[in-house]
Design a protein around this nucleic acid. Sequence first.
RNA 1: GCGGCCAUGGCGAAGUGGUUAACGCACCGGAUUGUGGCUCCGGCAUCGUGGGUUCAAUUCCCACUGGUCGCCCCA
Length: 420
Amino acid sequence: MKAPRGTQDIIPGVSEKWQFVEKQLIDISRRYNYKEIRTPIFEHTELFQRGVGETTDIVQKEMYTFKDKGDRSITLRPEGTASVVRSFVEHKMFGSPNQPVKLFYTGPMFRYERPQQGRMRQFVQFGVEALGSADPAIDAEVISLAMNLYRELGLQSLKLIINSLGDKESRNNHREALIAHFQPVKGELCEDCQTRLEQNPLRVLDCKQDREHEAMKTAPSILDFLSDDSSAYFTKVKAYLDEMNIPYEVDPNLVRGLDYYNHTAFEIMSDAEGFGAITTLSGGGRYNGLVQDLGGPETPGIGFALSIERLLMALEAEGIDLPIDESLDCFVVALGDEASIKAAGIVNTLRNAGIQAEKDYQERKMKAQFKAANRLNAKFVLVLGVEELQEGYATVKNMETGEQENIVFDEIPVYLEQNL
RNA sequence: GCGGCCAUGGCGAAGUGGUUAACGCACCGGAUUGUGGCUCCGGCAUCGUGGGUUCAAUUCCCACUGGUCGCCCCA
């Protein structure tokens, strides 16, 4: 038996990295005053159809959807925002006195895709959502949070790309212009783009296949169609980023793959060598209509999500070692049955005193027990033999210096606490 | 969803249509009857799964599963 395609086990040796990174993400989020939200891993299919958008690749071909025994259509969540917004509405968080409502989440997401490195069918996202504020300062805050998460872990090769998708009016005008622009050459575009032109002409812009087509190069930019309000908004977002010394690049072709975005859109990529085809570390943007689409009052929102798998890949690509403690405080070597019983007692006492302790369970000989202790990076080894048992002490060896001394049983916890 | 490459012990990695499938690392045991990191000796493999060709398949063919790279898309 193997884990299903596109899934992975995170086992000791790697799980420590996950724990470290996840703790880091949570700590930094707390500093920005985001609170954790946990939502179900599956939802009614309709939530994603409405929230993510019928025309998106996610909804059209990537969802894990099934009927449960009550004949309900259920979908394993492909992303986090729709669920968070659903929960925001369901729990009437729009009524909270603390606005905006600032939330973060971590957990597995599911998309049925062809796996390759950095693209799994089950992958873990960390994301934040700020609901209830239309202040460009919160856009900048979310972006700065995203950048800081990476920076504080030591990543250097980062590129922040931003764009504005405008408001409804801007998008409609741009949409008309795009259709008018591409219609005459429609037959020369790839099949997907021909469909996109009908359904969501904006997405023609980020087609990789037709990138070289001259109509692409001369295509009307959304930035030229921004309404005065949208344009002013985007200018303010940039001003905040400038003030926070966050470098960015404006890419008018940056289009997010989910339908709910408007105004600010951004993506963080890695420049690092050895990163293969996938360079996007995280993406996010503003979604001012989404809360209303999902049955809540008109409420602005912005958020972003990152993939922890890709974050770990980026760390690897940049050769960053996480400060993970792989040592063991104490290993108790016991010789014989009687000593083994005493060892179990001592190990228990030490653990109760907050000291990491381990003993042998393989009936190994002394030499092999020392080898095991060494392998576990034990800082101290306690030896219990016949003589020790008789006299009521343990031989305590400092594995780094090789020095050893006799410590009576009762004093072992204190001795170790003082010397660790 | 499309195309290429790949699959040998815990890990890395040779190899062959035919009796015992190299080697390195790790692990276990011994040399060293109570002390790790060095040395020497010994031990340790249903050759991804299923089917086919053949007197004989780990080796050839097919399917499946999985990995990987590119495309697509994204996190």
